[in-house]
Design a binder for these strands. Sequence first.
DNA 1: TTCATTTCTTAACTTAAGTGAACGAGTTAT
DNA 2: ATAACTCGTTCACTTAAGTTAAGAAATGAA
Lengths: 193, 193
Amino acid sequence: MKNILFDFISKYVSLTEDEKNAIVSLDIFRSVKKGTTLLKEGQKSLESYFVLKGCIRVYYIIDGEEKTTAFYTEMDALTPPCVISKTPSKYYISCLEDTILLVSNSDMEEEVNTKFPKFEIMCRMFSAELLVKQQINFDEFKTSSPEQRYLNLLQKRPDLIQRVPQHQLASYLGIKPQSLSRLRARIMEKNKG
Amino acid sequence: MKNILFDFISKYVSLTEDEKNAIVSLDIFRSVKKGTTLLKEGQKSLESYFVLKGCIRVYYIIDGEEKTTAFYTEMDALTPPCVISKTPSKYYISCLEDTILLVSNSDMEEEVNTKFPKFEIMCRMFSAELLVKQQINFDEFKTSSPEQRYLNLLQKRPDLIQRVPQHQLASYLGIKPQSLSRLRARIMEKNKG
DNA sequence: TTCATTTCTTAACTTAAGTGAACGAGTTAT
DNA sequence: ATAACTCGTTCACTTAAGTTAAGAAATGAA
């Protein structure tokens, strides 16, 4: 399990055994049951998450309706905007599956950063990378139709289509569940004829 | 003109006169004529921009069609993803109006950062803020309809609707120019009745 | 100025997404 | 085991966006 974490870190910096042990001793691993809500609208939080196993989901409730904006799976890291801006959350975060998380809070991070300067370097590289990914993601979403977005998702994150309920996927694509059903049927039809 | 820059910086850190002079002496101000293209698809770039006056626009050309994804106006900073990822650009950046920019390139930034540690602090605060804004922006886009997006824009950046051509605005909202015209007519109709 | 181009709007028609309702399959709770 | 839910799909209908075409208004260039 911890290997997932160290595989991830090795993409950015290389760690000594001592450093690895130090990380493990921080006791930041947390197991969460399917359905658990990690953050609710209105709450303040200092926690960031790294998904080791499982899947978590971010959604808003707008006019009583869930609007899913993100899924995080293995090797994905999530620092909720409200943690950075230190304002109450406008959204919910919950577990779609039994999930193993690495949880860190802002205070702790500072401590770790001073002890292990490598960490700060890694975090900076990571957040730069994240900014780029997010920008590209946004641009792709903006410049494509629901059908293109679905096909794109099928390419890039095929696992999501298996493990996530259709109505949450639909919301993530910016449409209603009925429209996703129809859209899928339409695509099947094209591939037949 | 330089005041716009220092007003902006003062939101993050306070500068001495010496520091201000040092910045001015870097000679990083550039005037650009309306219509100038700052970056083309396929090019590599190390330049980041800060808009002092005017407006620049980011767009893709997909199937021969312009897809506008962002506008940057006074006090907006833009570090194109391709600068961070050091890959060829997939998009264009051009000036919508005669524009005065502050231009920095990656090499120079490192030099400035070591000379003025304050700068690195500011940059980090700034990019954290940017990440949050971008995330919120994306979420808003995803969770709303074209009409809501237009009304939202009317609230948040009313100047854009005046200074930007309708067909570019339409693209920015994820729809065709004809649909934007219709949508505006629809809203006018509602406000009458 | 005049001619050409770009920009915006309107209209008619097509296509796709939203809505409300119904149904069967699978799950959960009692 | 049965009742109550949730979930995905389908259908008929409504609404909004895409498409094609045309024309008016503004802009730019010769």
